[in-house]
Each structure stands twice: as C-alpha cells, then as structure tokens.
C-alpha cells in the first residue's frame, strides 16, 4: 500500500516535471538548443502571475489565461532577438547565451520581486484531495497531471498532423534541406520557442500554486526538466513525458525509503540512464 501510494505520488509529481520538460524537449529537438534559462523563465512567469493575481485579485484560471499568451510572446521575442543569432551547428553559442540570460533574469527578478518566496493563492484548490481505496490524492496534482498529458498529446498531434508541425520536424531533421523546400528556419524557430515557453506558462501557474517560488529557484527546475528529457530521450515529446514519470516515481520511491534520499534517487536514476542508455529510453541511437 505504501509503495502503491509512492507510485501514485510519483506519477503525479511527474506531471509537474512533464510541464517543464516538454518545452525543453521541443527546443532541443528542433534547434539543438539546451536552454539554460528554462527554469528561470518558469520562475519569471510565476512571479508575474503572482503579481497579476494580487494586483487584480485574480484566481488561478484567469492568471493562466493571461500568462500563457504572455509566455508565447516572450518565447517568440526571445528567439527573434537573441536565440536566432546564436543557433547553429555548434551548440556552444546558444548554451553560453542562455546561461547569460539565466543569470540576467535571476538578477532582474531579484531587483523587482526581492529574494522572498511567494506563492499563488489557490483559494483552497491546493489543499483539496480525493480518497480512493484508502489513498488520498491531491486534486491539484491530478489537475497538473491531466494538463501535462493534454499538453503532451496536443504537442504530439501538432507535430504529426499540422503544417507547422511538419515544418518543425523537417527543420529538425535537416534545416538546410528545409530551407531548400521553402521553409524559413528562423520563423519556424521563433514559433517553436513561442510554443515551448507558452507551455511554461502552464508550468508557472501550477508551480506557484503547489509550492512557493523565489527568484533563485530557476536552476533547480532546470535540472528536473533536463533530467526528464535525458531519461526519455532528447527531442521526443512522449519520451519527455515518460522521462518525467520515471523521474517523479524515482523521487517518490526514494523519499519513502528515506526523506533525504528522494531528490538524490532521481539523480541516480538519471545518471544510470545516461551511463547505460545515453540516447534515452525512447531516443534513437
């Protein structure tokens, strides 16, 4: 029973990680960019959401509705103004640029919001739970998991079925050949990053609802996203989802073994996958 509970909690935790990991998998898959500022963008969006909520007395849903389009816009502008200049065959320039951006964002957030931890008022949503067969399941984590599943499914469908999705996959496979087929890589990249950061708009709201956020929290979120993506296989959407589940379950089970062991258990599983299957569980060798 205790282990079943750990498994369920792990899957629910994985739902949160999946919301981080999807955007990272998308950006890596299409542009080979590892966005070091990924976690900081989540925190930035969370803090904006919290400020919006307190300024206008908004509940979580209106905040989400306001935040996602803003996130899309931030992603688009970020790609157009910064990342399109550094994207290329060499992954180093984009790594350095996003690393710099990460530091700049953290300092900016510190200036605006101070180092204090804040959270988004959930009006009781965060404390509600449902009981199934003696196991209590938080309502918020269930919503998080459902949204994560929906986002993964939607992203996968978009990639497979739409004009934009085909252009994305073509650019990911061979960007020069894509250009020779009439695709403007930079336009496609801008929309890819817009989608990736847009998903972080969801993550930001849920992160601020389920715990507190502070300007310096970004790098920790980045690590979880990164580990989930590596475990699942870089660049695969469902791989990122499953990788998030594996990470969440590892942490939850580790936590049951010893509360101090939870996060470490996740790192160990990550390192184990990296050592034995570097292309990830779903990656192509």
């Amino acid at each position: 029973m205790q282990w079943l509970d750990a498994l369920i909690q792990g899957v629910l935790l994985g739902g949160m990680y999946a919301q981080y990991a999807l955007g990272m998998a998308l950006m890596f898959g299409v542009m080979r960019i590892v966005n070091i500022s990924h976690g900081d963008l989540v925190i930035l969006l969370s803090l904006i959401g919290i400020s919006l909520a307190s300024a206008f007395g908004l509940g979580p849903l209106p905040v989400l509705v306001a935040l996602v389009p803003l996130a899309v816009l931030i992603g688009f502008v970020l790609q157009k103004t910064v990342l399109n200049r550094v994207v290329g065959n060499d992954p180093l320039p984009s790594l350095i640029a996003t690393f710099g951006l990460s530091i700049a964002l953290q300092n900016l957030m510190l200036q605006i919001w101070s180092a204090n931890s804040r959270s988004l008022p959930g009006y009781g949503l965060e404390s509600r739970s449902i009981e199934i067969g003696g196991i209590y399941i938080g309502l918020l984590p269930v919503i998080v998991l459902a949204v994560a599943t929906g986002l993964t499914w939607g992203l996968d469908l978009m990639l497979k079925r739409t004009r934009f999705g085909r252009a994305l996959r073509a650019a990911a496979a061979d960007v020069e050949a894509a250009a020779m087929t009439g695709i403007d890589p930079r336009a496609v990249y801008a929309l890819a990053t817009a989608a990736a950061v847009g998903i972080l708009g969801f993550a930001a709201v849920f992160q601020a609802l389920r715990s507190t956020v502070a300007p310096a929290d970004g790098p920790a979120q980045l690590i979880y996203a990164f580990e989930a993506v590596i475990i699942g296989g870089m660049g695969s959407v469902w791989g990122a989802f499953i990788g998030s589940m594996v990470l969440g379950i590892s942490q939850a089970i580790g936590f049951r073994i010893d509360p101090g062991f939870g996060v470490l258990a996740g790192h160990i599983v990550f390192l184990f996958v990296l050592a034995t299957r570097p292309q990830g569980l779903f990656g192509r060798a």
Partner: peptide, 15 residues
C-alpha cells in the same frame, strides 16, 4: 537530403 524520420508522404507534404 530527405527529412529522415518522416514518411514519404510527409516529406512531400512539407513542400
């Protein structure tokens, strides 16, 4: 320079 990982039809559809 085909789009590896995509089907024949999807390769054509990109164009």
């Amino acid at each position: 320079r085909l789009f590896t990982g995509m089907s024949v039809e999807d390769n054509l559809r990109v164009a």
